[in-house]
């Protein structure tokens, strides 16, 4: 579904991604692991066109490297940013409406689905998104992306800074997304969640992939965990 080959990216003169190779298959949950600053978020931003890509990014057999952000999104890629990029001056409902790409097309997700999963969002549907708690904003950002009915959703650090109860809710939502046939590329700091829900995992180090395996294989590979993941 998504094939990334020899992907390089730069911030000014800094060479951040140094030949990244990986793929995500249909219906799969794939996690990108690694310490801070190894280029996991930059990988997602480069796929979405926010950072200029050098290399090949294929989505459903089509080369998307070099396309504009909205063209990439309209091909079925969804992106949930790390910084909970809600439209603070708009209400929760308006934020969700903004996620819909085509009002005439019926997608996998409806606003009621979001409100059923997260009653808090329903209660605060007509409240400005800027006054929501961090957890609620995280839920809203994920739900907003899902309203666009993506086939593959890339989620950057969804549990960062959230209370344990909210983390559980996020994990449940991730499982629900996968149940509805949507592939997930997850950037996650919390190893436990990634090991629990992923089909495959990649570990990044120094701007490229240093390990690929299943959760069981990674659990058994103490050397990789010590060298590339543990602080």
């Amino acid at each position: 579904m998504l094939k990334v080959k020899d992907l390089n990216a730069y911030y000014g003169k800094s060479h951040i991604l140094q030949g990244v190779n990986f793929n995500v298959n249909e219906g799969e949950i794939v996690s990108l692991l690694g310490r801070n600053g190894v280029g996991r978020s930059t990988t997602i931003k480069t796929i979405m066109g926010e950072v200029p890509p050098h290399g090949s990014i294929e989505f459903r057999g089509e080369e998307i490297a070099g396309m504009k952000e909205h063209e990439i999104a309209n091909r079925g890629l969804g992106y949930v940013p790390e910084n909970r990029d809600v439209f603070a001056g708009l209400t929760v409902r308006q934020n969700l409406i903004l996620g819909i790409k085509d009002m005439k097309k019926e997608g996998r997700w409806k606003m009621e689905d979001m409100f059923d999963m997260f009653p808090n969002l329903k209660q605060r549907a007509d409240v400005d998104a800027g006054v929501l708690s961090g957890g609620e904003q995280q839920m809203l950002t994920m739900c907003r992306t899902l309203m666009g009915d993506p086939d593959l959703v890339m989620i950057d650090e969804p549990t960062e800074g959230l209370a344990p109860k909210i983390v559980t809710q996020v994990a449940e939502l991730l499982s629900e997304i996968a149940r509805r046939g949507v592939s997930i590329l997850l950037v996650e700091q919390k190893l436990a969640i990634a090991l629990k829900i992923s089909h495959r995992l990649y570990v990044m180090g120094h701007g490229h992939m240093v390990y690929e395996g299943t959760p069981d294989e990674l659990k058994e590979n103490e050397q990789v965990r010590k060298e590339w993941l543990e602080v």
Partner: peptide
Amino acid sequence: QAAITRPNMTAMLGHN
């Protein structure tokens, strides 16, 4: 309104 405040995020939701 969304594009005024966060043009990049708006584009990544599929809006031109």
